[in-house]
């Protein structure tokens, strides 16, 4: 009898145990199911982010290469750089495609370095060609991509998807801040090449940009104030060069001037590499 009682008891226990397990299973499976959804959502987001970082890195590298080409200031090389930059523009199309229907700002941090570098390169090219500052609209106008559905040119407009990419004002600003470093380099090398006019033009232009940045002051993003310091240094170097040109320009013949400045740039160089 006692045995049976014991049996019953254990059976009851087993039953309640089972019940408890069942409810536990139920709730745990609902939590697990919910987390599987989160897993997918997070993975999708992270993957997209990583892809954007990768594109951004490619854009940075290609932009840097074209800037390097632009510094040589030879007409042929200039064309090569322009072609390279067109390639970069197409890469930005890839970003636009990734961001279709997304909130740009959610992934902004992934591609902002690349975009800044692109702004730097494209504004440098623009300056060399037109001696003026490219505007934000002009850049954005370049970043319109037609995605035609693999057919002839005469497609109905409905078949063509227009993708646009908008450079944010702060990315533009930071790109332009980087441009000033390139302009400084261009100034020094043009002096070394015996080009007397360019440095004065450049110092004028740089001063305008500097004034613009001073006007914005610290209302801009945090990085701007950091770059403002570098900008001041670049401007000072260019102004020094112009000063020296002006003072000595009258006493030394042009070809010798070049020698004077090549020794001067050698002095500046170590600092420059830090910039």
């Amino acid at each position: 009898m006692s045995k049976r009682e014991g049996d019953g008891c254990s059976r009851k226990k087993a039953e309640t145990e089972q019940e408890r397990n069942m409810t536990a299973d139920q709730s745990s499976s609902s939590i697990a199911a919910a987390f599987k959804v989160f897993q997918q959502e997070l993975d999708t987001k992270h993957d997209k982010y990583e892809r954007l970082v990768k594109i951004s890195r490619d854009i940075t590298i290609e932009s840097k290469r074209s800037i390097f080409l632009l510094q040589q200031d030879v007409e042929e090389v200039l064309k090569e750089a322009a072609v390279k930059l067109d390639g970069v523009t197409q890469k930005i199309g890839l970003i636009a495609e990734e961001l279709r229907g997304e909130d740009i700002h959610q992934f902004h941090r992934a591609f902002t370095p690349g975009i800044q570098e692109y702004v730097e390169a494209i504004s440098f090219l623009h300056y060399i060609r037109h001696r003026s500052l490219i505007s934000l609209e002009e850049i954005n106008a370049k970043l319109v991509f037609m995605k035609a559905e693999k057919s002839s040119v005469e497609v109905v407009p409905a078949d063509v998807q227009v993708l646009t990419f908008q450079v944010t004002p702060s990315d533009y600003l930071l790109g332009v801040a980087d441009l000033t470093g390139e302009l400084m380099r261009m100034c020094i090398s043009s002096v070394a090449n015996g080009d007397i006019d360019t440095p004065f033009q450049l110092s004028q232009f740089l001063r305008q940009i500097h004034d613009g940045f001073s006007y914005i002051g610290n209302t801009g993003p945090y990085e701007v104030s950091k770059k403002l310091h570098t900008l001041r240094q670049s401007l000072a170097k260019v102004e020094d060069a112009c000063y020296a040109l002006h003072v000595r320009g009258s006493e030394i013949p042009k070809h010798m001037l070049a020698d004077v400045f090549s020794s001067r740039t050698a002095l500046i160089d170590p600092e420059e590499s830090m910039v």
Partner: peptide
């Protein structure tokens, strides 16, 4: 667009953003 105009455009954007 001159440099100054460009910068005042950006400034306008930034201060709107700050508001």
């Amino acid at each position: 667009m001159s440099v100054t105009e460009m910068f005042s455009f950006i400034q306008g954007f930034l201060s709107a953003d700050q508001d």
